[in-house]
């Protein structure tokens, strides 16, 4: 702190600290605190606010379970909101795994195989689609994946029959992988560029096959990039509204849609807050699992 004051003077330091404090308090902690506080109170008519029924309760959270409808999963009756919640977490994990599966080889090629001169062009080609808004890009996938759409037409040229892409969670997963893959790609690419090529060659020289090089040298080296990529992609997927709304099918429901409906159709902000808080908890659990899995600390993930 004394260092910052010495370097930037007292005035500028105050501005820095004040801005950081404003961001932390006004944009993060206060809204979240209000949301969490709301989630423990019932949705009551205005006249009953601060009345005898306005007490702290877990009823909003419990409402997740007392659904009229339930679904039988492996012999257990799971209430629909819980079922949607679990599927959202499951499919977000799948999106994360798929993003890794596509992004890692791509990052490897770009960081270690492609000639240095070609890299800026390729990275530009990767970024340019991001100039278009997420809404339009998702619309584009809606068209591409349509039953009479260009993808099926292209597959038809190879004699492959028409596939119904937008059923179940297919469209949602394809759309999310596409939308979030770069958030996986760039952290991994960054950490792989710092891997010394001599280390790869040393491993090969000592008898390592190509998968040994990845398993024992490259992936451990890139683990901070991989863990931050996984964290970002998972959080974005769990919290995504746009993609599940646009590319979802009648049989796909995302938990954010449940929150959205509770909030704007039922006007029940308290229950919606409880559900939103659950998503926050899931994200926290996921981050700590990833940190445990990759044996990295929070600073590595934040990078």
């Amino acid at each position: 702190m004394a260092n910052i004051v010495k370097r930037y003077g007292i005035g500028l330091t105050t501005v820095f600290v004040a801005l950081a404090a404003f961001w932390m308090l006004a944009l993060v902690w206060i809204p979240y605190s209000i949301m969490i506080e709301q989630s423990f109170r019932l949705y009551l008519p205005f006249s009953e606010l601060n009345g005898p029924r306005d007490v702290y309760t877990l009823a909003n959270y419990a409402s997740l379970f007392d659904s009229i409808a339930a679904r039988n999963v492996l012999g257990i009756n799971v209430p629909i909101p819980v079922y949607i919640f679990l599927l959202t977490v499951l499919y977000s994990c799948l999106v994360t795994v798929l993003c890794f599966a596509f992004a890692y080889p791509m990052a490897w090629l770009l960081a270690k195989r492609v000639s240095v001169g070609a890299v800026p062009l390729i990275i530009m080609l990767l970024i340019i689609p991001m100039f278009v808004s997420e809404l339009l890009r998702t619309y584009a996938w809606y068209i591409i994946l349509a039953f009479q759409g260009p993808l099926n037409a292209a597959l038809g040229l190879f004699g492959i029959g028409k596939i119904r892409w937008l059923t179940g969670y297919n469209g949602v997963i394809i759309g999310m992988v596409y939308t979030y893959i770069l958030f996986m790609f760039f952290p991994i690419y960054n950490s792989l560029t710092s891997l010394d090529t001599n280390q790869i060659e040393a491993a090969q020289d000592l008898g390592a096959k190509w998968w040994d090089v990845h398993r024992l040298v490259a992936i451990p080296h890139a683990k901070s990039g991989i863990s931050s990529g996984c964290t970002i992609v998972f959080m974005f997927s769990v919290g995504s509204v746009l993609v599940p709304t646009m590319l979802g099918s009648p049989s796909s429901r995302w938990f954010t849609e449940v929150i959205l409906r509770t909030m704007f159709e039922s006007q029940d902000w308290n229950t919606a807050s409880a559900y939103a808080f659950l998503i926050l908890l899931v994200c926290l659990v996921f981050v700590s699992l990833v940190m445990r899995l990759f044996r990295v600390n929070l600073t590595d993930v934040a990078k």
């Binding site: 010394d196 001599n198 060659e201 020289d205 008898g207 040994d212």
Partner: peptide, 30 residues
């Protein structure tokens, strides 16, 4: 990886994320 040679690099290229013994045993592990 199939030649009977072992190369010692100018910068040594030791694996920074492994303890010393695992560095030494890397070739045996693979």
């Amino acid at each position: 990886n199939k030649r009977p040679t072992a190369l010692i690099f100018q910068n040594l290229a030791l694996f920074p994320l492994m303890p010393v013994w695992e560095n030494i045993a890397f070739g045996l592990r693979v």
